[in-house]
Amino acid sequence: MEDRRHSSRHATELQLEVYDLHSAQRLGRVVDLSADGFMLFSESPLATDSVWECRIVSATPVEGVSEVRLGADCLWSRPGADGQHSWAGFHIIDLAEDQAASLDVLLRHI
């Protein structure tokens, strides 16, 4: 598979959970993160080509940052080996300037 990422992704030791901004539904846990996107481990499959307004929430605030709000497009989704979980890759498509600064703070700490 061709890797088209502009930024390298970094596995995180921070506990980052992703929630739908409107319904507060938990989408999953961030496995890796970059300035361009992220990969999630989720309890339920997410639809490919779906667009989400999300909150990435840090269990522990980092330099005063506890969440980042952004828009993301689910580029792919695959079932996990156990058949009960799934993996999904997202591309960040909408990120306000103040939220980009917050994302940079998180990226510096992973």
Rank of each mutant, 00 (worst) to 15 (best):
M1A: 15
D3V: 15
D3S: 09
R4A: 11
R4G: 01
R4Y: 12
H6S: 08
H6F: 10
H6M: 08
H6A: 11
H6L: 14
S7Y: 15
S7K: 09
S8C: 13
S8Q: 13
S8R: 14
S8I: 15
S8A: 14
R9C: 12
H10M: 14
A11L: 15
E13Q: 11
L14Q: 10
L14T: 06
V18G: 03
V18A: 12
Y19C: 07
Y19K: 07
Y19A: 10
L21G: 00
H22T: 08
A24C: 07
A24W: 06
L27N: 00
G28I: 08
R29C: 08
V30F: 08
V31L: 12
V31K: 01
V31R: 03
V31C: 06
D32T: 08
D32Q: 04
S34M: 13
S34C: 11
A35F: 12
A35R: 14
A35V: 07
A35L: 15
D36I: 10
G37W: 01
G37N: 04
L40W: 05
F41S: 12
S42P: 00
S44N: 04
S44G: 04
P45F: 05
P45R: 02
L46I: 15
A47Y: 04
R55G: 00
I56M: 15
S58G: 09
A59P: 01
A59Y: 02
P61C: 14
V62K: 00
V62A: 02
E63C: 09
G64T: 11
E67P: 00
E67G: 01
V68T: 06
V68F: 11
L70C: 11
G71F: 05
G71C: 06
C74H: 02
C74L: 12
C74D: 04
L75S: 03
W76V: 07
W76N: 09
S77Y: 03
R78G: 04
P79A: 13
G80M: 12
D82R: 02
S86R: 05
S86C: 14
W87F: 15
A88N: 01
A88M: 08
A88Y: 03
G89Q: 03
F90Y: 09
F90W: 09
H91C: 13
I92V: 15
I92K: 02
L95G: 02
A96V: 09
E97I: 13
E97Q: 12
E97W: 06
E97F: 03
D98M: 11
D98G: 00
A100Q: 14
A100I: 06
A100T: 10
S102W: 01
S102H: 05
S102T: 01
L103R: 02
L103N: 02
D104V: 02
L106V: 07
L107A: 08
R108F: 06
R108E: 09
R108A: 15
H109K: 10
H109E: 11
I110Y: 01
I110T: 13
I110Q: 08
